[in-house]
Amino acid sequence: MKTLTLGKTGLTVSELCLGTMTWGTQNSEAEGHAQADMALEAGVNFWDTAEMYPVNPVRAETVGRTEEIIGSWLAARGGRDRIVLATKVAGKGQVIRPGEPISGAVLRAACEASLKRLRTDYIDLYQLHWPNRGSYHFRQSWRYAPAGIDKAAETDSMTDILTTAQALVAEGKIRAIGLSNESTWGAARWLHLAETLGLPRMGSVQNEYSLLCRQFDTDWAELSVIEDMPLLAFSPLATGLLSGKYAGDVIPEGSRRSLNPDLSGRITARVFPAVAAYLGVAARHGLDPCQMAIAFCRTRPFPTIPIIGATSLEQLKTNIGAAGITLSSEVLEDIAETHRAHPRPY
């Protein structure tokens, strides 16, 4: 497993990141611990979670449970310095603090609550799960209208958050900060404020990216490269669609789709032809489709770390195996042609 420097954060992380959002719903505590053991043994030292996890569904009675499972693993196994741990503060509109935007005070309270659940003294990468002003992610781009945004108010809010982050860094509670579900304007504004005010710099962004969802390929790609802000690519398998397990519009028992039938808007009339095309690419080149999809993310011209998740050890083993896959120029050209034929399936 290769290791990489995460942008300008100073953190050294594995080339794949372990996603944990099913721990506490689709996966039990014991299963979460088994996944953690397998990942670390394979060299995956970078793990991602959030205060609102687990998902499918997000419920008030389960929020924080994933962090608790990671905390119990740390208590049982020790060796906090063996892993680079990322978590997130939830944005407004979620079951945690519904309607309340992220502020400096919210950031501090949420961070300290996460530290207790994780049973650790520090968080390596602390991310804002959503921008306060809203976003175009999760299929919201179809009706996105960035109207009524008060630039001065946004600037004041961002400054408040960065000032608190600076204090949390000074106290040793977080090492770096990052973004999630953010836009290029938002990221540029965060970077500008950090530079001009001498405040902590947003080090990474966690946005959706896969063969089926390539919003990052244009303006975001430019910003990512020039500013050295790596993409932590969530859903690189498009919530399992690219594995082929839903081909033919089936819903396997116990799958994510059995809990979320439209996969948060990803099930459309266009998606299954696109999936079939990518499965065809993998078959023609003798590749596992999951490994091909994950390995593709690592080929991008901008710094990318795919976040891999699984509900079984067998799935996790396959996904980790993508780290050893090098896609040939023929495969990449086949993927490019497929993308042109199926540019935006959801």
Rank of each mutant, 00 (worst) to 15 (best):
G104V: 12
P289E: 09
I174K: 03
A75M: 01
G321M: 11
V275Q: 08
K92T: 03
K317G: 09
L162W: 11
A274Q: 08
C111Q: 05
T239R: 14
R270P: 00
A310G: 03
I251W: 09
A221C: 01
N45G: 01
K116V: 14
G93E: 13
P98G: 11
D249C: 04
Q94A: 12
G93P: 15
F234P: 04
K116N: 05
G265Q: 02
V84C: 12
R117T: 11
T311S: 14
T66R: 01
G93H: 14
D150C: 07
I251S: 13
R175K: 15
K245H: 05
H129V: 04
E68S: 13
K173F: 07
A42N: 09
A50M: 09
V55G: 00
I83C: 02
T311Q: 12
G324L: 04
R266F: 08
M202K: 00
G32Q: 01
A238H: 02
G7Y: 07
E222T: 15
P261F: 12
P54S: 10
S28Q: 09
S135Q: 11
L199R: 10
V58A: 09
L313N: 02
A152N: 08
A153Y: 02
E29R: 13
T164W: 05
H342G: 02
Q140E: 13
K92N: 10
G134Y: 10
V13L: 01
L197W: 00
L6K: 07
Q166N: 14
S183F: 07
P54G: 11
E337F: 07
D334I: 06
T326D: 13
L313C: 01
T318A: 05
P343V: 00
L263V: 06
A165N: 06
I325M: 15
W73I: 04
R133I: 14
A153Q: 14
P345S: 04
T25E: 08
N207F: 08
T318R: 12
E29F: 02
R97D: 15
I335K: 00
Y209E: 04
D121I: 00
T218Y: 08
S235T: 15
T12M: 02
E208A: 13
A147V: 14
V89W: 03
T5L: 05
G265P: 01
L241T: 02
R117C: 03
E337M: 03
S28I: 08
E195C: 03
V250P: 02
A323G: 11
H137Y: 03
S312R: 15
S72R: 14
L197Y: 10
E31G: 02
Q291H: 03
I325A: 01
L107Q: 07
V331S: 11
P306A: 09
F138D: 10
T299E: 15
T66E: 12
E15T: 14
R119Q: 15
L191I: 14
L74E: 06
L11T: 11
A86Y: 00
G91K: 04
P261W: 09
D262I: 12
C213I: 00
W185S: 13
V95S: 08
S135M: 12
L74V: 10
T62P: 00
T9V: 07
Y246N: 08
H137S: 01
T164D: 03
A39H: 07
P200L: 05
A165F: 10
L85Y: 05
I149R: 15
H339D: 07
G64A: 04
I69G: 01
T196I: 14
L11V: 08
G7M: 06
F138L: 13
R175M: 04
S141I: 04
P200C: 10
